[in-house]
Computed example of a mutant assay.
Amino acid sequence: MSKFIFCTAFLTTLAACASGPHQFTYADFEDAKVLPYDVPPQVIYRIDDYRFITLEHYRDCSHGDTYYNDSKTSIRTYLGRGGIENYQGTLIIADSSERNVVIPSSAPPNFACSDRGCTVSMIYSTDSGKTFRGTKYMLSFDPYSDSRDMTIVATSDSIYVARRSAIDTMVDKYPLNPAVDLNKPYPPGFLNEGAWAAKRKLMPDNLHSPSGQERLSCDASIRPSNPDAPLN
């Protein structure tokens, strides 16, 4: 799978101080062919006993590679780098057929967006995680913080994207079907819907992932012994 770009931004303006001779920058991190960090994979989101997302080769909980795994069908799909692990909102995969999966991204803390903001994406699959497509779900100047207000749900036929505000929750519903590319005109019979929750109920109640997990989780105490390794 080709690398998926999660955000558009002035990447070179972001730098984290390193104690060694090599200064870590997001641009170098994103462009590295292979991340050198010596850490074990972490399961950061579990759908059920055999479907899960791992964070691998990570410098910390915000900077690594993510993979979708299905141990029952031996699917292992590369998802991206420095995006998915930073999503702070609610994520529910509630399709009993196990065909539909949606995975949102975000950006690391203090990520520098352009003066037009960051275009933040989610990826979705209708073939049980073998392949993924991407589409925008948010425009933000602070994706890491703003993603905390998001709830993203996959069901047997739809993606629901809900954003909570101080006043109400806005819910958008998108068709989830192999015939539909969310970035192109839809075939006849498919459409988007949107509504303020206080005015119209759009998203069903009692939706849950089989595992019960609804947020990504990473053990920040697991760190590499070589965090300042050069990025080539």
Rank of each mutant, 00 (worst) to 15 (best):
I5T: 08
I5Y: 01
L11V: 04
L11R: 13
C17F: 01
S19E: 08
S19D: 13
F29N: 04
E30N: 06
D31N: 14
D31G: 03
A32V: 09
V39E: 05
P41K: 10
Q42T: 01
I44A: 12
I44N: 06
I47E: 15
R51T: 13
H57T: 04
G64D: 01
D70H: 10
I75F: 07
R81M: 15
I84R: 01
G89M: 11
V102E: 13
A107N: 06
R116I: 14
C118P: 06
V120F: 00
V120H: 00
S121M: 08
I123Q: 14
S128E: 13
G129W: 07
T131E: 05
G134A: 03
K136E: 08
S140Q: 02
D142L: 00
P143C: 05
Y144P: 02
S145K: 00
S147V: 00
T155H: 06
T155D: 11
Y160T: 15
V161C: 03
A166L: 02
I167S: 02
D168Y: 12
M170N: 02
P175F: 07
N183L: 08
K184W: 15
P185H: 04
Y186Q: 11
G189I: 10
N192P: 02
A198N: 04
D205I: 11
N206E: 14
S209M: 15
Q213A: 11
E214D: 11
L216G: 12
L216E: 02
L216C: 07
C218S: 12
S221K: 06
R223P: 00
S225M: 08
S225I: 00
S225W: 01
